[in-house]
Simulated assay, not measured.
Amino acid sequence: MKFATKAIHAGQSPDPTTGAIMTPIFQTSTYTQAAPGKHKGYEYSRGTNPTRTALEDCIAALENGKFGLAFSSGMAATETALKLLKPGDEVITGNDLYGGSYRIFTKLFEPYGIKFHFIDFSNPETIREYLNEKTRMIWVETPTNPTLQIVDILAVSKIAKENNVLLAVDNTFASPYLQNPLDLGADIVMHSVTKYISGHSDVVMGALVVNDEELYKQLFFYYNACGGTPGPQDCFLALRGIKTLHVRMKAHCENGRQVAEYLRSHPKIEKVYWPGFPDHNNHDIAKTQMRDFGGMISIVFKDTSIENTFRIASSFKVFSLAESLGGVESLINHPATMTHGSIPKEVREKVGVVDNLIRLSVGIEDIEDLLEDLKQALA
């Protein structure tokens, strides 16, 4: 089954009672049993819900995985994956990382005795310098947030397997349409479903996808025991959003390319981060492991003053200044004060997240309107 067909049909079938073609919203907390222990696969909605099951099966199919789990947020999904660790374990992760991931790593899990190494993943061989008998997981983000760095998933997975280390990949920026980490050797794929998968800025949700049944059972135990699960209404909305994922991603990529090319030639811009440029770091890897280059772009202004950056960020008429990304509408974000505000200034600036950088999530509006908006805001 091809991607577009899976997006519309995977995990879903007409309701056997009514014939409804859309998965019903099973707005129930519990389920009757014929006798104690004799149920139809559903006992209590913290653990399982039919609407959520359809979503989980659909997302798993899009990632070419066997098992999916949906969570109340991307951070709930991330936290559940990290529950596989124990005090004394070590994790190797990137130095250009989403601020929420950095925060949960350093503020929540480091105090429990888990050590994180934040390294440059541009050359995967660097990982070997940090591997030891305590290494339990490698956590990769690719493309990274916000400088769109590309990590060679296949090369990292080979190193992980050689050393019996789990590889988890945050695939949020690419979406399953552009990249499938399980096919490249990852053990766990994480998504903020809030972003491209749902795609309409009306849902907060996360997901994990795996192929190994034992790993799935471990994750499901934490998922059920700790209860970071989404309600059926949000699952229904995410399922509805997925049905147009392939169509939306094509538009994001087309608009993203034209916006990136326009910005690169603009006299007020010092640097444009976009994986589609031949001189972007690891562009050749992006061409190999991604199907296109996406709609995420970051730019650095020549004027280094934060006042200039704030003025421009507040001058858009079509783009909206807001957190998040991946929705049908175009968004502008200032990472230093918004998504990456929890990262110390000296840490984020080392990897290029400077005060005069803004991140664009290019939506699917008419490209002429987007380019005109950029022109007037940068004037």
Results as ranks from 00 to 15, higher is better:
88 G>Q: 06
96 D>T: 12
126 T>L: 11
126 T>W: 03
79 E>Q: 12
66 K>Q: 13
70 A>T: 10
95 N>F: 11
62 L>S: 04
100 G>P: 00
55 L>A: 13
112 Y>W: 10
57 D>M: 14
95 N>I: 03
101 S>Y: 15
137 M>L: 15
80 T>C: 15
63 E>D: 11
85 L>P: 05
118 F>H: 14
93 T>S: 06
55 L>Q: 02
117 H>F: 15
91 V>G: 07
93 T>P: 04
139 W>Q: 01
127 I>W: 07
137 M>T: 11
141 E>F: 02
102 Y>E: 03
134 K>E: 09
88 G>P: 11
94 G>D: 01
83 K>D: 13
90 E>I: 01
138 I>Q: 09
97 L>S: 00
140 V>E: 04
104 I>Q: 04
77 A>T: 08
127 I>A: 01
66 K>E: 12
56 E>Q: 13
95 N>V: 03
127 I>V: 14
75 M>L: 15
135 T>Q: 07
79 E>Y: 10
113 G>P: 07
72 S>L: 12
85 L>H: 01
137 M>P: 10
137 M>V: 10
98 Y>W: 13
121 F>Y: 14
56 E>A: 09
121 F>I: 10
127 I>K: 08
101 S>C: 10
106 T>D: 10
128 R>K: 15
130 Y>N: 07
132 N>C: 07
102 Y>K: 05
73 S>N: 07
133 E>S: 14
60 A>N: 10
113 G>F: 04
107 K>H: 10
115 K>H: 15
108 L>I: 13
106 T>R: 13
85 L>E: 00
114 I>Y: 05
130 Y>I: 01
94 G>S: 14
84 L>R: 07
77 A>W: 06
70 A>E: 01
128 R>P: 00
135 T>Y: 04
91 V>I: 14
91 V>F: 06
92 I>N: 05
137 M>I: 13
72 S>Y: 03
113 G>R: 01
89 D>E: 01
71 F>T: 05
132 N>Y: 06
139 W>V: 08
110 E>V: 10
132 N>P: 03
128 R>Q: 13
117 H>E: 06
69 L>R: 01
96 D>R: 07
58 C>H: 02
61 A>E: 12
57 D>N: 15
123 N>W: 00
92 I>M: 07
139 W>I: 11
70 A>G: 08
61 A>V: 07
56 E>W: 11
142 T>K: 10
99 G>H: 02
119 I>M: 04
117 H>A: 06
89 D>V: 00
140 V>G: 05
83 K>H: 11
81 A>L: 12
113 G>W: 03
135 T>E: 07
87 P>K: 02
132 N>T: 03
74 G>R: 04
127 I>Q: 06
100 G>I: 12
132 N>Q: 02
77 A>Q: 05
116 F>M: 04
82 L>R: 07
74 G>V: 10
142 T>A: 06
62 L>R: 08
72 S>V: 14
128 R>D: 00
69 L>F: 04
92 I>P: 05
80 T>G: 02
64 N>S: 14
128 R>H: 05
90 E>D: 00
109 F>I: 00
108 L>P: 01
90 E>R: 15
126 T>A: 10
95 N>S: 12
137 M>W: 09
70 A>D: 04
101 S>N: 13
122 S>N: 09
113 G>H: 04
124 P>M: 08
103 R>W: 13
55 L>M: 13
136 R>M: 09
60 A>L: 09
107 K>W: 02
